[in-house]
Amino acid sequence: MIEILPNKCDFCGCCVGVCPEDAIELKEAEIKIIEPLCTNCSKCIWACPIEVIKFNRNGVKAAS
């Protein structure tokens, strides 16, 4: 499962641009994974320039 680390995201949108499932919602200073759409493909993790998206074995934690 994918988790965006709270308070570390820069809201740049790079992850949104590569997500094939439209599973990330980004506002001015708020971001969340739309859990039912996410397939855990990891592409957002590889694209995040500052390494703030991680796998989270305990399930998705939509962080803002």
Binding site: L26, P49, I50
Partner: peptide, 25 residues
């Protein structure tokens, strides 16, 4: 912008292959 979702809501394929996305900082 790069985070565009508007096109997807109208059914266009707009996401970029992660290999073609330059992650910048």
């Amino acid at each position: 912008g790069v985070e565009s979702r508007v096109g997807r809501w109208a059914g266009l394929k707009t996401y970029t292959d992660f290999r073609d996305m330059e992650s910048g900082t």
